[in-house]
């Protein structure tokens, strides 16, 4: 079985950061393999290890994301595709339908049996790309999957709110968005990391995928970026651990929960 896994590099802001216009300077940002994608990748790699097959990753992003792509290669992906060019770089934001269009073209070119994605990315948290991608392809889909068995169909557990799971059978081919906790993502060995450093990453432009700039035009414009005003009214205690612990103990005693 051939599984394509979408891999995103996510950014997180440092404790102290500054916003300049519509951007946060990269020195205040840390990057990593998107947490959800790590679980999607592990699920695909385990299926390929158990039953044979190939795991191919697809990433939209500039050359700078190759470190993250290599993390995915070190954790068991067989090949990696990265899509980027000047037209993508010129976009204001990469919205879900744009991502779905680009990733859909990669799927068309690769013809996998299944596509795994993370449920969402940790930085912009759109959570809409998996279903938009399935719709672009005309495929079936299953989202927020935290348990998966594959035979003629994909038997999935979908994690709903409030400790409830929906049991659903999804026809194939399908796009499945994978929830954290479905497995335990592996740590790459030093040997795997070294191998991944030397691996070739297949880089493609929109033209390579038979897409033109009109296909990725987005009507969504970012107009502001700011730190939300604090609405918190917490009393913050300062001092040594002993001092703050004494303050907290007094608060706890005041609540009357200690009987």
């Amino acid at each position: 079985m051939k599984i394509l896994v979408t891999i995103t590099e996510t950014e997180s802001v440092d404790t102290v950061f500054e916003i300049d216009g519509l951007e946060i300077d990269s020195r205040y940002l840390s990057t990593d393999l998107n947490e959800w994608d790590a679980y999607a990748l592990e699920e695909a790699v385990q299926i390929a290890e158990d039953g044979g097959g190939e795991v191919v990753t697809a990433t939209i992003g500039p050359e700078g994301v190759e470190g993250t792509v290599r993390q995915a290669l070190a954790k068991g992906a067989d090949r990696a595709i990265r899509v980027w060019d000047e037209e993508l770089a010129a976009l204001d934001i990469l919205d879900p339908l744009t991502k779905a269009t680009v990733l859909g073209a990669v799927v068309d070119a690769e013809q996998p049996d299944l596509v795994f994605t993370g449920v969402q990315s940790g930085d912009d948290v759109f959570g809409a790309t998996p279903v938009a991608l399935a719709s672009t392809l005309g495929w079936a889909w299953g989202t927020v999957v935290n348990d998966l068995q594959i035979d003629e169909v994909a038997h999935v557990h979908r994690e709903l709110e409030g400790n409830l799971e929906e049991l659903t059978d999804v026809e194939r081919p399908a796009v499945l968005s994978i929830q954290t906790g479905i497995n335990q993502p592996r740590h790459a060995s030093l040997r795997d990391i070294t191998r991944a450093q030397q691996a070739e990453i297949d880089t493609r432009s929109l033209a390579d995928l038979d897409l033109d700039v009109d296909a990725i035009a987005s009507p969504i414009e970012q107009t502001d970026l700011y730190e939300p005003e604090s609405e918190g009214e917490a009393t913050i205690y300062e001092g040594s651990p002993e001092e703050t612990a004494t303050e907290l103990a007094a608060v706890i005693e005041e609540t009357g929960v200690i009987r």
Partner: peptide
């Protein structure tokens, strides 16, 4: 909407 786990907010204009 929020970004980066609620540490940043953004506004998006949609002209369609």
């Amino acid at each position: 909407r929020e970004l980066y786990g609620g540490k940043v907010e953004t506004t998006l204009d949609i002209d369609t």
